[in-house]
Simulated scan of single mutants.
Amino acid sequence: MLKAFADLSTPLVADACLRTGVPLRVAPPGIRPVVPGHRVAGRALPVRHYGSVDVFLEVFGRAEPGDVLVVDNGGRTDEACVGDLAVLEAAAAGLTGLVIWGLHRDTPELVEIGVPVFSYGGCPPGPVRLDEREPQALVSARFGPHLVGGGDLVLGDEDGVLFVAAERAEEVLTAARGIRATEREQARRIRSGDTLRRQTAFEDYLARRGADPSYTFRQHLRRVGGAIEE
């Protein structure tokens, strides 16, 4: 999956979700890689954190090579829930990355380990609580407004993280590649002096919108074969 995502980006995938009608499930803003430039792509391995590392050690027993650990820590900003030992153990279990709805710690060690970790940022203290565990602790993870399960794929880069149902992934990635090709050609033409307004027949769009206020630029782009919004 990381190879399939290698020449794409989360903005392209987000636009492809809109184009194909796939629900757009994006992690809350601010989730970024600990190491700039790191990317992640793979099947979600969800887990909910309650204050103890035991839940991670348990879910690692279910891991398959290439999985991405998706950690639900409720978006908390008062504690870190993942540190260097958890990341090393994740790598030993075959995981290719971790995506945390919350904070991490041991930043220098995580940089040295090199496994992609995405979170809101670093925080010195770990948890001092121990909450009651839910039955779905190893089945699904909340991530902002979204529920992520083992049937989802995780895609992340410096723009953020999003989740796509596995059965729609190939459709979405194919659409993303098409959008990328169109946008690259548009960019090439802009650099050569052919403005985006000319490429998209923008004056024609304004005239059509004047005659029909319901006519949208998105409809127009699809008619002329352009890509910028989706």
Rank of each mutant, 00 (worst) to 15 (best):
A176S: 03
Q186V: 11
G66H: 06
S52M: 13
R208L: 07
A169G: 07
V71N: 01
V34I: 12
L162M: 01
E171W: 04
G114D: 00
L98I: 11
L18Y: 13
E158H: 09
D152K: 06
F163I: 01
S119A: 13
R218L: 14
E89T: 12
F118D: 01
D72G: 02
A207C: 09
I179G: 10
R62K: 14
L130P: 01
G226R: 09
V34D: 04
V172G: 03
L110H: 05
Q186A: 11
G61H: 12
F202A: 07
G30P: 07
A6Q: 14
P23T: 00
P36G: 05
G121T: 02
R39S: 06
D157S: 00
P125D: 03
E171K: 06
F217R: 11
G51C: 08
D194I: 10
L24Y: 06
E183I: 15
E64L: 13
G178H: 12
G156H: 05
E185G: 09
G30H: 06
T96Y: 06
G102A: 00
R129A: 10
L147V: 14
A137Y: 13
T174C: 11
H38T: 14
V71E: 00
A6W: 09
G75M: 07
D194P: 00
P11S: 14
Q136G: 13
G75N: 09
E229N: 14
V53I: 15
E183K: 15
E203F: 13
Q186S: 10
G61A: 11
K3G: 08
A181Q: 14
H220S: 09
G149P: 02
A14Y: 14
G66R: 01
G30L: 00
F143K: 03
G114K: 04
A27L: 00
A181Y: 10
E229I: 15
L130Y: 11
R189L: 15
E109L: 13
A175H: 04
E112P: 13
R168A: 10
A91W: 11
D194Q: 08
V148T: 05
G150Y: 05
G156V: 05
G94R: 00
T195L: 03
R209Q: 12
A4G: 13
N73V: 12
F202N: 01
A41M: 08
T174P: 04
L95Q: 03
V128P: 07
K3T: 14
D204E: 14
L45V: 03
L147K: 10
R184E: 15
Y205W: 07
E79F: 11
R19E: 15
V47E: 03
L173H: 02
L138F: 15
L45W: 06
T10W: 09
L98V: 10
V164C: 01
Q136W: 14
Y50V: 15
F56G: 06
A41Y: 03
P124C: 00
R191Y: 08
D84I: 13
G83A: 05
V34Y: 09
L88K: 08
G160N: 08
G51D: 11
H146I: 07
V59M: 13
R32D: 03
T20A: 04
F118W: 04
V154F: 03
L162P: 00
E183H: 14
S214R: 14
V53E: 15
R223D: 15
R191G: 09
G97Q: 00
V99T: 04
G30S: 02
